[in-house]
């Protein structure tokens, strides 16, 4: 599993404060903690309070780059903010994200190619959030065909089925999981799949338990990557164990430690 740490996000008050006060050390500590706990990549998001996101994302990336060369996910709904982050982060980053809308795809796929970046494609459009499996698949196909048209390899595409909170859209959970499996057979080579995990437990009373139960189920459906809180040890332990049960790693008594060393 490709673990993308979600904690460098201006919607968290400690990060918002660090951005405001230009406290590099706080950002770097957050980056290194996530990596130590198993993150393969770090999401970078200035958050809603940032007044100058184009500048702020660049500062965040530069702060993180001083302490790690891990993959960074530049997270914004604004293409100019993403490009500012890409410039600072260098080749091999991931764009988070595009929707299935033609204007977004027309802007962000060229950007991904220009900066040799991966691209997260949300199966959502201006028409709204998909309500079932077929709508998800249709939006996924739209994104995949736009990538094909622009000669962007689907190996570098991460399709996100849009995880809804279980207390809002309980009837959709099975469709979301099944979409993960179906996205893989849309094209050859297969696109990758990703979820923004925490959304599934939004507004519930048992957030951690719901997060890790959903994640282990998604792993069984073939999920490749997840944006999550790597500091939630129970969550990462459950993830590692799910992959162990699927024979993705060799068992040994210290298998949890062995995984984190990779």
């Amino acid at each position: 599993m490709f673990i993308i740490g979600e904690l460098i996000n201006g919607m968290y008050s400690n990060i918002a404060a660090a951005i405001k006060e230009k406290d590099k050390a706080a950002i770097q500590k957050c980056a290194l903690e996530q990596i130590k706990c198993g993150a393969d990549a770090l999401d970078i998001n200035c958050g809603p309070a940032s007044k100058q996101p184009v500048v702020d994302i660049q500062w965040l990336v530069e702060a993180v780059r001083e302490v790690t060369d891990k993959t960074l996910c530049l997270d914004s709904s604004k293409p100019q903010v993403i490009e500012s982050g890409l410039k600072a982060a260098g080749s091999g980053s991931i764009i988070n994200s595009t929707t299935a809308d033609p204007e977004k795809l027309g802007l962000l796929i060229p950007l991904a190619k220009k900066y040799n970046a991966g691209l997260i494609g949300l199966t959502i459009s201006a028409k709204g959030i998909p309500q079932n499996r077929d709508q998800r698949l249709e939006l996924a196909a739209t994104i995949v065909s736009a990538c094909a048209d622009q000669d962007f390899s689907t190996e570098n595409l991460y399709l996100d089925p849009i995880v809804m909170p279980v207390n809002v859209a309980q009837t959709q959970m099975r469709d979301i999981l099944e979409s993960i499996r179906e996205f893989k057979i849309i094209s050859e080579p297969s696109p990758k799949t990703v979820v923004g995990l925490s959304n599934v437990s939004q507004g519930t009373s048992a957030r951690n338990l719901i997060n890790r139960t959903f994640l282990t189920m998604a792993v069984a459906f073939g999920l490749d990557a997840a944006i999550l809180d790597p500091l939630d040890k129970d969550l990462v332990d459950a993830l590692i164990t799910a992959e162990l049960i699927l024979n993705k790693n060799i068992y040994c008594d210290s298998y949890l430690e062995a995984y984190r060393r990779k």
Binding site: I250, Y251, C252, D253, S254, E257, A258, R261
Partner: peptide, 11 residues
């Protein structure tokens, strides 16, 4: 035993 081989390397 592959499991022990892995464990021993970690130890």
């Amino acid at each position: 035993d592959i499991n022990i081989a892995k464990q021993l390397n970690i130890l």
